[in-house]
Computed example of a mutant assay.
Amino acid sequence: MPRRDPPDGFTVEPATPDDRLDILRVLDAAMLETDAETVAAAIDAGAALVARFDRTDAVVGALVAVRPDSDRLHVDAVAVRRPRRGRGIGTALVATAVRQADRDPVIDVVTAEFDADLAEFYRGLGFDVVSVGDGEEAGRLRGSRRVGDGSRN
């Protein structure tokens, strides 16, 4: 996967406990359902990232990941504040999570579940994308990207 650095003026870094409220606000503004306990656990596990605007240090994007299995990192939520979207911040957040997973010798795959309108976003980051199903899940997709098997950067 080509390196996907944040755009000039922005930094992607591991979240700290002080970032918890900002992460929840970014995810809430994007109407994503992630609870405070999941965010706190991800921060403690080093599986939460924030994107900051360098000039003000404000959190403008966030990614929360979980490890449902020891060999899998799942992107539970990723969001960027509306005025900052379309600049590559979300791409930088997901690419950073994939690079971190690639460095972890236990993780084999990074997964995410998302709406159909994000299929090209995840494909562009090297994810294989499949339909989740029908019924209530219609229109939902699942992406997976293998790491640690020769795809290391």
Rank of each mutant, 00 (worst) to 15 (best):
V80M: 02
R52W: 02
A40L: 07
P105I: 10
T96H: 08
D28Y: 06
A101P: 00
L63W: 01
Y122E: 09
G143Y: 09
R25C: 07
D69W: 15
V50G: 06
S70I: 15
D22F: 10
V109Y: 01
M31Y: 13
G126E: 05
L27G: 05
T111S: 13
P7W: 04
T96M: 02
V106I: 14
T34M: 05
L27P: 00
A36R: 13
D18K: 12
G90C: 10
R87G: 03
A15N: 05
V12Q: 01
D76E: 13
R67N: 09
A41P: 00
V64S: 10
V106Q: 08
G126I: 10
L21V: 15
V12T: 01
T56I: 03
F121K: 11
A58D: 08
V26Y: 11
A138Q: 12
D28C: 03
D35E: 07
V26D: 07
V80W: 01
G150M: 12
I43Q: 03
F114A: 12
D57Y: 07
D28G: 13
V94M: 08
D108L: 07
P6R: 02
D35R: 09
D18S: 15
M31A: 14
R72M: 15
R55K: 13
A41Q: 12
R67S: 12
G126H: 06
T56A: 04
R55W: 05
V39G: 03
A40D: 13
P17Q: 11
A40V: 09
L21Q: 15
L73C: 08
E120T: 14
F10G: 02
V109I: 09
P68W: 06
I107H: 03
E120L: 14
R55E: 09
D5K: 13
M31F: 14
G150F: 13
A40S: 15
